[in-house]
């Protein structure tokens, strides 16, 4: 078993929290993990990505080779498309529908979503909207993680435990909110991503 996941977004949007949940859950299942991240200049509102590799055997490269990502999980729709060369033929795209616009030449959104929909395995989630309804838009990343969870070869149990562990220093309310966000995301993608899980 080897799973390659690219997380993408804009510096400051919190993709590393998703990475940390995946890392923690994978370690608790005694799996090998490598996870590269971007530090430095790009963290100031630039494009950032993290390569997460999970396997039951030793992993060598910290970077996922092009054409080998099973999943691109993005907290921003344009940033999803930036990493298309990494996607496997039958890989999955999961993204928040909410754009983060901090450039003057952000593309036409309709065209953006047309491009995403061209790909058969895509899930577009109103993650920020859902998170807002639950109580904090910042939990959008957990909504997305929930939505992608059927494609990720880690048990729900260990993902939930990892979320609890990561937020353990925060208030009871924040832990609950993030768990709820995860569960909501899972519900939204039910029926779509089950397809992948059943394979």
């Amino acid at each position: 078993m080897k799973t390659n996941i690219i997380l993408s977004g804009v510096g400051g949007q919190g993709i590393l929290t998703i990475a940390a949940v995946l890392d923690t859950a994978a370690l608790s299942e005694d799996l090998f993990i490598k996870q590269s991240e971007v530090h430095g200049m790009s963290q100031r509102g630039g494009a950032v990505q993290s390569h997460v590799r999970i396997s039951d055997k030793e992993i060598f490269s910290d970077l996922i080779p092009e054409g080998q990502a099973d999943l691109i999980l993005s907290v921003e729709p344009m940033e999803l498309l930036r990493y298309m060369p990494f996607l496997k033929k039958d890989g999955w795209l999961v993204t928040d529908s909410e754009s983060f616009i901090n450039t003057s030449n952000y593309p036409d959104k309709k065209e953006l979503f047309n491009q995403i929909k061209k790909h058969p395995n895509h899930v577009i989630v109103d993650a920020t909207e859902i998170a807002k309804k639950i109580g904090n838009s910042k939990a959008a990343n957990m909504v997305l993680l929930g939505a992608a969870s059927a494609i990720i070869p880690l048990s729900e149990d260990s993902l939930v435990k990892a979320i609890k562990e990561l937020f353990q220093h925060k208030s009871e309310r924040i832990i609950k909110l993030n768990l709820e966000a995860f569960a909501e995301g899972k519900k939204v993608a039910e029926g779509i991503t089950d397809l992948a899980a059943s394979k």
Binding site: V10, G11, M41, S42, Q43, R44, G45, G46, A47, E66, G67, M78, E79, L81, R82, Y83, M84, P85, F86, L87, N102, T103, N105, Y106, P107, D108, E111, L112, Q115
Partner: peptide, 15 residues
């Protein structure tokens, strides 16, 4: 062979 980056994608430099 891999898919290209779609042309709608614009650069997002740090700021």
């Amino acid at each position: 062979s891999t898919e290209p980056v779609p042309s709608v994608v614009t650069p997002r430099p740090p700021q």
